[in-house]
């Protein structure tokens, strides 16, 4: 799966989870998105797990600093 495909699908997930339809990039961080707090982060990870058919370990869930790291993790797990 290419990063473009991942970002495209994440666009739908950000709409579903945060009702956010703005731009997404590797440098997007939680402060950019209304509702992306600690609870929102878990909702985001759950939605990503479901959409990409992957599973994150607890330490991976809390250790992500920006969207680029999440995309890299998805790319690695989803193959």
């Amino acid at each position: 799966m290419t990063d473009d495909e991942i970002y495209q699908r994440l666009g739908g997930i950000f709409d579903d989870v945060f009702e956010y339809e703005g731009p997404l990039g590797a440098d997007t961080v939680s402060a950019d998105v209304d509702g992306w707090d600690s609870v929102g982060h878990i909702r985001l990870v759950l939605a990503a797990e479901e959409a990409f058919g992957v599973r994150f370990e607890p330490k991976e869930v809390v250790g992500l600093n920006d969207l680029g790291e999440l995309v890299a993790a998805i790319r690695q797990k989803a193959g």
Binding site: D16, V17, E19, R43, L46, A47
Partner: peptide
């Protein structure tokens, strides 16, 4: 699902 329910809750 939970996200859709949240959308209605908002």
């Amino acid at each position: 699902d939970a996200n859709q329910l949240q959308r209605l809750a908002r």
